[in-house]
Amino acid sequence: MHELSLARALLTQLAAEAERHAFARVLRVKLAIGALGHVDPDALAFAFEVASKGTLAAGAALDIERVAGAAHCLGCGADVAVHGRGDFCPKCGGGHLVVTGGEDMKIRELEVA
């Protein structure tokens, strides 16, 4: 359950932003989570709901944008879309793909008041 650690890391960043930008409440948090990131979005949403109680982000909406996985095939040289680690190349069937995208765990923006 490292999603709880991630939720706490998010809340720490929100508290720091609240000081910098002088806001009292977070209404919405927009995250970008890659298909190949080290996080389960549903588990993160649950952890955030629990961990944010009593904080400036209590009740804030969590919008999670899913970023598709992308990889470069060392076999045929194609840049391809992948759904998970260990996927085979959809073009040549090769098994040696270097991940090039979709590992994001990013805070895109906040809506605050």
């Binding site: 932003e17 930008h21 995250l31 996080v39 008041a113």
Partner: peptide, 15 residues
């Protein structure tokens, strides 16, 4: 109520 938007584009594990 609509709040103001702050763009961060920062890694969740930046700290």
């Amino acid at each position: 109520e609509r709040g103001r938007v702050i763009t961060l584009e920062r890694d969740l594990l930046a700290a």
